Amino acid sequence: MENFDHFDQEVCMHFNTDSDPFYGAIIPPEFGNSLFVFPTFEELVHAENDQLHHYVYWRGQNPTVEIVERKLAAFERGEICKCFASGMAAITAAVFNSVRAGDHVLCISNIYKSTLELLKYLDKFEVSHTVVYSTDKKSIEKAIQANTTLFFLENPTDMNLQLIDLQLISRIAKPRGIRTIIDNTWATPLFQKPITFGIDIVVHSLSKYLGGHSDLVGGAVITSIDIMNQLFNNEYLLFGGIMGPREASLLLKGLQTLPLRMKCHQENAKQVASFLASHPAVAKVNYPGLQAEESQLSKKHFSGFSGLLTFEIKNANYEAIKRVINRLRIFKIGVSWGSFESLVISPNYGNNVDELKRKHISPGLIRLSIGMEPASALIADLNQALS
């Protein structure tokens, strides 16, 4: 973790932000114009027919957004990227591009609840889905149906933070013609590069670590040129869920500090996770960085670990969850994660315990987004809340 990949550092800092085209400006400008004009009608027609590679209208390509897209594609070792107005807009585009009526989607263990809601919504279009909670080869293969065309997964998995062998997933999927999509928001491209393990599409919520300052909402899809050619002309242009230049400019600034921020998030999270693992009120800590040296999957996939972790209290009920969360002072109560501030939340809302158990999630689970405050202060806050 002390030494980042030099190319990744270059991507975050300077890649594709040459100041020469912008009169020496060290920060690329925000192109806020909604349309672009042409010297001749013939040139407009040519550009309209290939909007992926020409500036015609903001809904297709924008120079500020394109700078970020080229960075993210290089960062993930993918061929091409398109940025969206939110993480869910990116996920929706990727999923809709991958299925048609009559298809089946297999979710590999726990995924983001809004992604699962999207898959439930697809029932109206005769696209079904199931979840397999065991991540071994036999269980996954057994869960595949004759009409399965898509695997959707996160690594680590949502809430429980289990690890999945991405190479295994690719080897199961490709011979069967099944497409694979992974949400790589937890690890960021700095710590995990799923495309290098054979995954077809990577999606991100840019609102989290890549933005890093709780001031933008955005999403990204990184994939091959072949897949993007189809996705751009349909789910991108037609759905219209595009990123604006202001958000792209904020994202550029977030990327510049990403390696430094992720180092701090990781170091703080390891200290907090170690403290929680030894606390008498804690039943379990879910954090891939806690025992990384003993985990072959950790060594295989990750060059580092982010600051999102979960833990389970022994008194696993809603009242106990409330007491712990409401006692915290440095940790702010709120959704989302991945920014400079520390946040806390629980999936236990008091009326959904049966649902949590069906999803193999402990009713005593609390999620922490470890920010950039001193680790000692965060530990002291947790200690007084758990006492």
Results as ranks from 00 to 15, higher is better:
Ser109Tyr: 03
Tyr112Ser: 09
Cys107Ala: 08
Ala93Asn: 04
Asp103Thr: 04
Ala90His: 03
Ala90Gln: 00
Asn33Gln: 09
Gly87Met: 09
Gly87Thr: 03
Glu66Leu: 13
Ala47His: 02
Glu79Gly: 08
Arg100Gly: 13
Ile91His: 05
Leu118Asn: 04
Leu122Ser: 06
Thr115Cys: 03
Glu43Ile: 06
Gly102His: 03
Asn97Val: 01
Cys83Asn: 13
His46Arg: 15
Phe96Ser: 13
Tyr55Phe: 14
Ser98Val: 05
His129Arg: 01
Val95Ile: 15
Trp58Arg: 15
Arg77Ala: 07
Ser109Thr: 10
Ile67Glu: 02
Thr130Ser: 01
Gly102Lys: 01
Leu72Val: 07
Glu48Gly: 08
Ala74Ser: 14
Val37Asp: 13
Asp123Glu: 12
Val56Trp: 07
Arg77Asn: 12
Lys82Gly: 08
Leu118Pro: 10
Ala101Ile: 03
Ala74Tyr: 09
Leu44Phe: 12
Ile108Lys: 00
His129Lys: 00
Thr40Ala: 02
Tyr112Cys: 09
Tyr121Ile: 05
Ala89Val: 08
Tyr57Ser: 13
Ile111Asn: 02
Asp50Lys: 10
Phe125Gly: 10
Ala101Arg: 09
Ile111Trp: 05
His46Ile: 15
Leu106Lys: 01
Glu42Gln: 11
Val99Asn: 01
Glu79Thr: 09
Glu48Ala: 13
Trp58Ala: 15
Leu122Trp: 00
His53Val: 04
Asp50Cys: 06
Asn49Asp: 10
Phe75Asn: 07
Arg70Lys: 15
Asn110Met: 02
Val105Ile: 07
Glu79Ile: 02
Leu116Gly: 03
Val99Glu: 00
Gly87Lys: 02
Asn110Asp: 10
Val105Ala: 01
Thr64Asn: 04
Cys83Ala: 12
Val127Lys: 02
Gln51Asn: 14
Lys71Ala: 04
Arg77Cys: 06
Ser34Asp: 14
Leu119Gln: 00
Ile108Gly: 03
Cys107Met: 08
Cys107Glu: 00
Glu69Asp: 11
Ser34Asn: 14
Gly102Cys: 04
